[in-house]
């Protein structure tokens, strides 16, 4: 499948940029939104050299730009609503004590959850009106079961999962051309996780990017785990009684 245009929010994230690389042969025009405008410009040039027909950029900060309608802005650049929107930005607090800070909690919640849901709201209104479109959001396997570390991050992602499940149910009833894709990668080696111990079975951002591209091209919907074996792993993890989680030091 090829589609005519796509908006990527948080485009400079490692996973999102690899997704864009993998989508170049399938998508003609890109709008990239991200916070760091310098890296955004470099990525845009890069995609052009890799064969994208047109690449536009929008500066976007998930903490500050709460009132903007990115979809409208992308539409103005493209002359049409994008067919696919991928939302990839997030922060993972580094400090293990982050959950005790009001400031960090507010910030993480704003970037990972509020900004994403606000975007989803505008996407929903635009897409429902037009009758088709795919919204793909990068969540995480972390959201499936709380651990003693990073549960603030997990909680912000869990909210996305529930919201997207609901939106998917609603859209399914409306039209098969309205798609919601919840992407749940396992541990990926990216700048976000550079400070963590090397985890066995970690995968590269490139690999994840390709898988996301494939899911989008095939029009997949629902919660998708990358790599696939995280699905059975998390199924088991969800069933583990609490005392087992207490013993596992993760």
């Amino acid at each position: 499948m090829t589609f005519s245009s796509m908006l990527i929010v948080g485009a400079t994230s490692q996973i999102a940029s690899h997704t864009a690389y993998a989508l170049v042969p399938h998508c003609r025009r890109f709008v990239l939104a991200a916070r760091n405008s310098e890296r955004l410009a470099l990525l845009a040039d890069d995609l052009r050299h890799r064969g994208a027909e047109a690449v536009y950029t929008l500066p976007y900060d998930a903490e500050q730009d709460t009132d903007r309608d990115l979809i409208e802005e992308a539409c103005a650049l493209l002359g049409e609503l994008p067919t696919v929107v991928l939302i990839a930005h997030a922060v993972l607090p580094r400090d293990d004590q982050a959950y005790r800070s009001k400031q960090t909690t507010r910030e993480v919640l704003q970037i990972n959850t509020s900004s994403v849901l606000v975007l989803c709201a505008t996407i929903a209104s635009h897409f429902e009106e037009r009758g088709y479109g795919t919204v793909a959001v990068i969540s995480s396997v972390a959201a499936d079961r709380a651990r003693r570390s990073n549960f603030l991050y997990a909680a912000t992602k869990a909210a996305l999962d529930v919201y997207l499940d609901g939106l998917a149910l609603r859209w399914q009833a409306q039209s098969p051309a309205l798609r919601v894709l919840t992407i749940k990668p396992g541990f990926v080696r990216t700048p976000m996780t550079a400070h963590l111990e090397r985890v066995p079975f970690s995968v590269s951002a490139e690999r994840v990017g390709r898988s996301i591209a494939r899911l989008i091209i095939h029009g997949s919907t629902g919660r998708r785990y990358i790599p696939w074996w995280w699905r059975p792993v998390m199924l088991i993890a969800r069933c583990l009684p609490r005392w087992v989680m207490q013993r596992i030091r993760l």
Partner: peptide, 9 residues
């Protein structure tokens, strides 16, 4: 071919 797992034991 991109290796699935980065660190194969």
């Amino acid at each position: 071919k991109v290796p699935l797992i980065e660190h194969i034991p």
